[in-house]
Amino acid sequence: MFSRDKNTNAMGIRLVPGKQKNVIENLMQFYLYDFTQFLDIDVTERGDFAPYPGLAEYWIKRETRFPYLITYDNKPAGFALIDRLDGEDEVDFYLCEFFIMKKYRRSGLGTWASHQLFDRLRGRWKVTQVSTNTPAQAFWRKTIGAYTDNQYTERVDPERGNPSQYFSSANI
């Protein structure tokens, strides 16, 4: 049985090799299901969600795309998809997607994993949430605030209303 105690020894994060990309593809179904609460998305006629656009590129463009698997006791518990934005003036890394299975939420795993990512990929970051996903907004403000000692800025996209946090992990 899963314990809510913070056992960082049981927490893991690693880049996913191409031969295991199906793990991310499978977890993506749960992620998209969670998003039905915040966005108007539906399953296909087969009862699954359409493939995530561009997911295959995370195993083709390995110099600019980083698919991470988040584990607990060596079992899949979530994932992160990160893009390196070469040539961008504002940011180096964009956290495209971040998912922790409900079973592991509020255990410290998400905070631990995100801090690991920020430490591994040093630079300027952008993290965005959907405007209707207030739990994610609260999580990221708290998590990034703790990581940066509240040294981040937040901007809201004027067209979509999605908030984004900007910060640097380069000097932490």
Rank of each mutant, 00 (worst) to 15 (best):
N22W: 12
A170S: 09
F79A: 05
W140T: 01
R65D: 06
V23C: 10
V156D: 06
F49I: 02
R65Y: 13
H115Q: 04
V91L: 05
N7E: 11
D92R: 00
D83R: 08
A138M: 11
K75R: 10
T71R: 04
P53E: 15
P76H: 05
I60T: 08
Y31I: 14
V43R: 15
I60W: 00
N9A: 09
Y58C: 00
P51K: 14
F99W: 13
E90F: 14
D119P: 00
E97N: 14
P17M: 11
E159Q: 05
D86Q: 10
R84C: 05
Q137P: 04
E63Q: 15
S114L: 03
G47T: 05
N7Y: 11
L121V: 03
R106D: 06
T36M: 12
G123S: 01
Y166I: 09
L15W: 06
G161M: 02
L55C: 06
E88W: 15
V130N: 12
K126A: 08
E97S: 06
K126C: 07
I41P: 06
G161L: 03
A113D: 03
Q116W: 08
P67L: 12
P51M: 08
R65K: 15
G12R: 00
A113V: 04
M11F: 14
F30V: 09
T8I: 12
D73L: 11
G110T: 10
S164P: 07
K75A: 13
D40G: 03
Y104P: 05
Q151F: 07
Q151E: 08
D40K: 04
A113L: 02
R106E: 11
T143Q: 05
Q151L: 10
T71H: 04
F35Q: 15
N171Y: 09
L117A: 02
Y31K: 10
L69Q: 09
N22M: 09
L117M: 03
T44F: 12
L95N: 06
E159W: 05
N171H: 06
P158I: 02
Y52M: 14
F66C: 03
T111P: 07
Q20D: 13
S168E: 04
R4S: 02
R14A: 15
G145M: 08
G47P: 08
N22L: 08
H115V: 00
H115W: 00
G123W: 00
S3C: 06
R84M: 06
K102F: 10
L95R: 01
A170L: 11
G18E: 14
A170F: 11
V23K: 11
P163E: 10
N133F: 12
A56K: 13
T132H: 04
A77C: 14
K19C: 10
T64N: 09
T134E: 08
P53D: 15
Q137Y: 05
F93D: 00
V91G: 03
G161A: 02
S131Y: 01
L69S: 03
A80T: 00
E90W: 14
V127H: 01
L27F: 02
D40T: 07
L32V: 07
V130T: 09
F118I: 00
M28G: 07
L55N: 12
R84G: 04
L81V: 12
T148Q: 01
D157I: 06
R141H: 10
F98Q: 09
V156S: 05
R4F: 03
P135R: 13
R160H: 15
S164W: 08
W125K: 01
I60P: 04
N171T: 06
